[in-house]
């Protein structure tokens, strides 16, 4: 899903999924997984198609004029906008958390907090803040307690 959302397809998707899972997947199988996602989320698909179009540049001179995708610039652009978006989400969540819990560490999509126990309403509170900042979007908020320092164990 993440590979699809980031606009990977074909060998790019194969490379991305392979690197993340440390497994050589069958290219056709990945294509079969991607297809229903493209149908289910047509706006993501069309966004990436449209975006890709703007990264084609003229090459070949007058002898064999054609256009070539500047794949590096294209990927860099996507990485940057995803990074910026995650940073914004991260700031909003950090603000919501800091009202009730001391935030010890902040990574883009997860946070380390120091507390005896998180309140049950905290995920909902974070979700509300995110909905206010990014109307119409959906977020999955999960809280896990690290029990490795529990003296009872």
């Amino acid at each position: 899903m993440r590979g699809f959302a980031l606009g990977f397809d074909s060998w790019g998707l194969w490379n991305y999924v392979g690197q993340r899972t440390r497994k050589a997947w069958d290219l056709d199988e990945l294509g079969r997984w991607r297809k229903p996602l493209a149908k289910r989320y047509p706006r993501i698909e069309s966004f990436h198609k449209e975006l890709e179009y703007h990264f084609y540049r003229d090459v070949g001179g007058s002898y064999t004029p054609h256009r070539e995708l500047d794949a590096k610039a294209h990927r860099l652009f996507i990485d940057e906008i995803v990074h910026d978006g995650l940073q914004q989400v991260s700031f909003v969540v950090a603000l919501a958390l800091s009202d009730t819990l001391p935030v010890v560490g902040r990574w883009q999509s997860w946070f380390l907090c120091e507390a005896e126990r998180a309140s049950e309403s905290l995920p909902e509170k974070i979700r509300e803040r995110l909905q206010t900042a990014f109307p119409g979007s959906m977020f999955h908020v999960a809280i896990a307690e690290d029990i490795t320092n529990d003296p009872a164990l």
Binding site: S10, Y56, H66, R67, E68, L69, A71
Partner: peptide
Amino acid sequence: GHRELAGVRYH
């Protein structure tokens, strides 16, 4: 590579 030739995109 990804190329566009005669108005058609080839991945």
